[in-house]
Design a protein around this nucleic acid. Structure first.
Lengths: 179, 179
DNA sequence: GGAAATTATTAATCCAGATTAAGAAATTAA
DNA sequence: TTAATTTCTTAATCTGGATTAATAATTTCC
């Protein structure tokens, strides 16, 4: 985790911890939410809406950081559940680590860069959601995350795309037929 | 613009410039995109998709900053148009201002905070897009941006919500009837 | 002020994707 | 290994919001 030090200016007491597949790291409503850096394995964040339906917000494979930013930065109750989709080794970054450390300019620039990238991804996803059909969004997902596809159930990919598993299944059938 | 200095560590050569309603500050495909701080007036950013349809990405009233982050930070061609919806006075922040200035720790923290807030907003909007009906999203918009509602055409609110003006008109009729 | 252009509304029809249902395949657990 | 659970697929039906169209209300601009 060499560049973790660069990024967060911390090194001690950041031993990766192991969690089993299915483990829920944090739940909707939690007030002390963390960020999780995935050393290996795979996480997802998701909400459950008023109607009881689950919506995947993002996936985090190796070297990604996942958190509920609103909760973490602004101390709001978490909107998002965070769950292990595979047995995972994680470095848990709590508010103490992320907020109270003096960083140098380069470290700050790197953090700004990370956040900017996240915004860019969300911007692209938002626009796709408004302007593309479900099939177009699925095909884009395949291009952007080719190495994730085999590790994630169709059900969850559908949820990430904002459609039902049935709709995704139909799209996949369609694509298979036309090729 | 006192806190602009705090935020960006700059003060000179940042005289607000005036633009007329309807002026397009930057277009899809532009490579030298800026950020715009709205001193007064109102801007919007939007894309035009392959099918030629417009989608409003965000509005920026007084004291907001608007930009195509992906373009600005990562030098990609802009996805977003940025347009004046009212006569506006703007401070234009180019890459030079935003990137090359040495900031102190507090200034960096403030920038990180701004970006985090943007992510939080996008997260909430994304989740709303996936889990709420058009009517629910409209009602949430009314709550979150009560002071914008009167200044923006229905057409653009509809576009921001990801629906057609006809659909929004129907929803408004519905709401008016039930009250 | 008046013509032209844009915006908002209403209504009829259409369609992408939701819902419901049920069986098949794969995974998990005992 | 088998039973139980979860995931995936297929198909019929339904529905929220899109599309199309036409008219009314506003705004823009000469």
């Amino acid at each position: 985790m060499e560049n973790l030090i660069e990024l967060f200016g911390i090194s001690d007491d950041l031993v990766p911890q192991k969690f089993k597949k299915g483990h829920i790291l944090q739940s909707q409503g939690d007030v002390n939410s963390n960020a999780y850096l995935v050393k290996n394995g795979l996480l997802r964040s998701y909400t459950i809406d008023q109607k009881g339906k689950e919506h995947v917000f993002m996936f985090a494979p190796e070297d990604w950081i996942i958190s509920d930013i609103e909760s973490q930065e602004f101390h709001h109750p978490a909107e998002l559940y965070i769950e292990c989709l595979e047995d995972s080794e994680l470095i848990i970054l709590n508010r103490k680590h992320l907020a109270s450390v003096e960083l140098n300019s380069q470290q700050y620039q790197q953090r700004l860069n990370k956040l900017s990238r996240r915004i860019a991804v969300l911007q692209r996803r938002m626009i796709g959601m408004m302007s593309s059909t479900a099939q177009e969004r699925y095909e884009e997902f395949l291009v952007y995350y080719p190495n994730l596809v085999g590790r994630i159930s169709q059900r969850m990919i559908a949820s990430y795309l904002g459609i039902t598993p049935e709709a995704l299944s139909k799209i996949r059938g369609q694509i298979a037929k036309n090729s």
